[in-house]
Design a protein around this nucleic acid. Structure first.
Length: 506
RNA sequence: GUCCCCAUCGUCUAGUCAGGCCCAGGACACCGGCCUUUCAAGCCGGCGACGCGGGUUCAAAUCCCGCUGGGGACGCCA
């Protein structure tokens, strides 16, 4: 049997380093065994999936040096490789489960569900919740469906006994069945959830081994149940430890830059980033720190995976990147990398229009544009003090923090959208736009005035902006847990009040 | 709260499955020194961990149990 693995990112945001980490291990495992590595796009969330996210994820994975044998861009014998294009397959699968009694229709509305969940929680129940439609006779269920009542299809789960799943790294894992919920398999929009789609696709794509994040362990019983219901052979499960923030929680963009694009923009080499990800939970037999993909592949062994969740330590990544920069490249290659990174037509082309009116000589460009080429900006508290219209450090910190939160909601990171969001923020906070913006100039460029802010932010990119703003806030004073909670509440209320006011206006 | 996973320096880890070679090795960071016109880089040195308690054993970082701690899941997200 040929080993076949896959990585299945969801195109709902920026390319995540965790995706590259999981992809790397899947790639190495498949290739080590002479097998194939597949890339599949899990875009069953109609609301959040975007084409641009998918494009960025593919580009980012290629950038770090990964490639796949089958995927939406390269095709393959088991396509299509985008779940939104495989809808029929899941519908059929769901119908099969309905007929075999392994699944049932649930007619609860979203509101009913929310209420039931609250009641369930309040009751102090220690078992998973059960739908009132679990045992609705099939004829009645069919009748309601035919009448046009909205429904989802849920998995019928055993209520007694213990489920045993096998994890390649951990051995047997036992989960009481009464803890396993009646997972929605098909949503009311007719699209499958991850759970159904992933089982159906892994089977049809002949996936033999699933290397995925540890966060999936708790849904493994449901997946196993599905394989059994379909009468399919289940792939071997390998749950990888999760990448962590410095505080040990699951790596998240609120606490740490997680986008591959950020590390690219910050001047990390793809080889170094991939090398570093290969050092997460894994080590070379001789413990060497620097290695490339082919070397990792040569020595890859699942048994060398350690199970403690590794903290993604940017400082060590920086050191490793330095090693690559110093020892891994010839001078010509180095020069080429610098050009690829920022000294190219495309990147300079974005910056030139912003600086040319402000410069009399080419030498004027360096001081005007240097911050486009920097990482974090070195700031002293005084740099962020004495703004007209701002009374205190806390006000500055709040302006920056709230604005950052507000910007998170932006679907597409470009100047016009950024402008709209910040204008709205000024209104919400009841300050003039120019007052609100003043700290941004310093936080982002280190100077009181610079190139036009919104366009500048667009070019810098979401992650650099986020990192610099956070750094500026920290320069004045790090946000304490208490403050975080208080501000979040106040922010939510202010936004709600603003929305209400707008609605009242008509 | 319930269930599940995990546990070696601050961080990444070797060693754990096949107990003795480990009063625990390497790397990052930090501190000190050497080199050097400066700063880096490099080299040398220092600091620093088997979470706790019970067992099993001649012998435990390694095996077993409990506790504690950390993490994850509990969505018509993935």
């Amino acid at each position: 049997m040929t080993v076949r693995t896959r990585v299945a990112p969801s195109p709902t945001g920026d390319p995540h380093v965790g995706t590259a980490y999981v992809a790397l291990f899947n790639y190495c495992f498949a290739k080590k065994h002479g097998g194939q590595f597949i890339l599949r796009i899990e875009d069953t969330d109609q609301v959040r999936s975007t084409a641009s996210s998918e494009r960025m994820i593919l580009e980012a994975l290629r950038w770090v040096g990964l490639s796949w044998d089958e995927g939406p861009d390269v095709g393959g014998p088991h396509g299509p490789y985008r779940q939104s294009e495989r809808a029929e397959l899941y519908q059929e699968a769901a119908a099969t489960l309905l007929d075999s009694g392994h699944a049932f229709r649930c007619f609860m509305t979203a509101d009913e569900l929310t209420e039931a969940r609250a009641a369930h929680q309040a009751s102090g129940a220690t078992q998973s919740m059960i739908s009132p439609y679990t045992d609705l006779p099939r004829a009645e269920s069919d009748a309601r469906a035919a009448a046009g009542d909205a429904f989802v299809i849920r998995l019928r789960t055993p209520r007694e006994g213990t489920c045993v799943i096998q994890d390649r790294l951990r051995g047997a894992i036992e989960v009481p069945w009464d803890q396993v919920d009646q997972q929605v398999l098909l949503k009311s929009d007719g699209f499958p959830t991850y759970h159904l789609a992933n089982v159906v696709d892994d089977h049809h794509m002949a996936i033999t081994h699933v290397l995925r994040g540890e966060e999936w362990i708790s849904s493994a019983p449901k997946h196993q149940l599905l394989y059994q219901a379909f009468g399919w052979q289940m792939p071997e499960l390998v749950h990888l430890p999760l990448l962590r923030n410095p505080d040990k929680s699951k790596l998240s963009k609120r606490k740490n830059p997680t986008s591959i694009l950020y590390y690219q923009r910050m001047g990390f080499l793809p080889e170094a980033l991939l090398n570093y990800l290969g050092r997460m939970a894994w080590s070379m037999p001789d413990e060497r720190e620097q290695f490339d993909l082919s070397e990792m592949l040569e020595h890859f062994d699942l048994d060398r995976i350690s199970l403690g969740g590794p903290v993604f330590d940017v400082t060590k990544l920086e050191w490793l990147n330095g090693v690559w920069l110093r020892d891994g490249l010839t001078e010509d290659e180095y020069a080429q990398r610098v050009m690829d990174w920022a000294f190219n037509r495309e990147f300079l082309g974005q910056i030139i229009p912003l600086v040319r009116q402000r410069a009399n000589k080419l030498t004027d460009l360096a001081p005007l544009a240097s911050f486009f080429l920097q990482g974090l900006i070195d700031l002293k508290p005084e740099d962020l003090q004495g703004f007209k219209g701002i009374e205190s450090d806390d006000e500055t910190r709040r302006i920056l923090t709230w604005s950052l939160w507000h910007l998170e909601a932006l679907a597409e990171w470009e100047a016009d959208g950024i402008q709209a969001v910040l204008r709205e923020m000024a209104e919400i906070m009841g300050v003039k736009l120019r007052v609100l913006l003043a700290p941004f100039f310093v936080a982002l460029s280190g100077q009181r005035s610079s190139t036009p802010l919104f366009q500048t932010m667009g070019i810098l990119g979401k992650d650099i902006v986020r990192a610099r703003i956070r750094h500026a806030v920290d320069t004045l004073a790090p946000i304490s847990k208490k403050e975080q909670g208080r501000w979040q509440k106040a922010y939510d209320q202010a936004v709600a009040a603003h929305v209400a006011a707008l609605a009242a206006q008509g």
